[in-house]
Amino acid sequence: MVDWLLDTDSLQEFLEHLVEDALAVCDADGCGVTVQRRRRPLTVVSTGTMAGKLDEKQYGLGDGPCLQALRTGEVVHVRDVLREERWNSYPAYAAAHGVRSSLSLPIPVGTRTAGALNFYATTPDAFTDRDRLRLGEFAAQAGGGFALALRLADVEDFARDLQAAMLSRSVIDQAIGAVMQQRRCSADDAFALLREVSQETNTKLRDVCARLLTDISGRPPTPQPPLRPRP
């Protein structure tokens, strides 16, 4: 659901600033933002030398605190990886890379979880209950950024669909006019004839019209100019 997120530069910049601000209010030594892309987890923002490595380790295992937060929509708090028995070889890997505790918070977008905000620390019990509350606010802000990017993407998709519809309408209208002139018939009769050809040949109406106009003029039809926003 978040392929469009990775192509939104403003969202990327927003997440980078958000992560920096979040690290300033807690004792974490690194942070990563995990999202799901083409059904695979991906780190889109990472700070510190350890966050990216630990995220990738979890992706390789198919399990870990950040993936659990992403899948369940619940906060996952690891107080000390040396006392952790979940996630197979991940705790030992984290300890070997100097990480002793972590906090993974789901990033909500409406009723869904769009990703996870993952904090890593070199000391055990680095995250307090107050940290969970404060960092939860950052996760909510990230969700707001995701939701805004999604709304903008929906608007762009609608504009593209509308433009395509208008281009098709232009070609169809030109073809109706050509048939009216050739057959000396009404617009309704011309449209009915074109639709009949479309159905009989199992060809899209726009393609039938475009072919007709090309045969008449010797060149492809010229569509209406694209919509442009008002200044």
Rank of each mutant, 00 (worst) to 15 (best):
N118W: 02
G177V: 04
N118G: 01
V78E: 04
T43M: 04
V44H: 08
V19Y: 04
M50I: 06
P221V: 08
D29A: 11
K53Y: 05
T123D: 10
W4P: 03
M180Y: 02
G144D: 04
R211T: 15
P225G: 05
V2C: 08
Y90R: 02
V76A: 08
P226W: 00
L23N: 10
E137D: 13
F14V: 09
R38H: 14
P65L: 08
G64P: 01
L117R: 02
C66K: 00
V208G: 03
T111V: 13
G115C: 11
I176R: 09
R38G: 09
L150F: 07
L148N: 02
D157V: 13
D161E: 15
Q12Y: 12
T8C: 13
K57M: 08
A147W: 06
S104C: 15
T43L: 05
V81A: 05
D207L: 12
Q174F: 04
R71S: 14
G32N: 10
M180G: 01
L70N: 10
C26K: 03
R183W: 03
G48Q: 05
L82R: 11
L135G: 11
D207Q: 15
L42E: 11
V197D: 10
A69P: 04
C26H: 07
L117I: 10
F158D: 15
R228C: 12
L5I: 14
R37I: 11
L135D: 07
R219F: 08
V208D: 06
P220Y: 08
E85N: 07
I176N: 01
T222M: 10
P106N: 12
A149Y: 11
C66G: 06
A92L: 03
V25L: 14
V179G: 03
L70F: 06
C209P: 02
A94Y: 08
P91H: 01
G115T: 08
G136F: 09
L133P: 04
I176Y: 01
V197P: 05
N202L: 00
G115E: 08
A149V: 09
L193F: 14
P229R: 07
A116I: 09
Q224N: 14
Y90C: 00
D131R: 12
L103P: 02
L167H: 12
V171Q: 02
L15Q: 07
V171K: 01
T123V: 14
R230F: 10
E137W: 09
F138R: 08
A24H: 13
Y59L: 04
T111P: 06
G30Y: 02
D9I: 12
L162H: 13
R40A: 07
L23M: 15
E20S: 12
E85S: 06
R37W: 10
L133V: 14
N118T: 06
T49D: 13
R206M: 04
Q174S: 09
R71C: 07
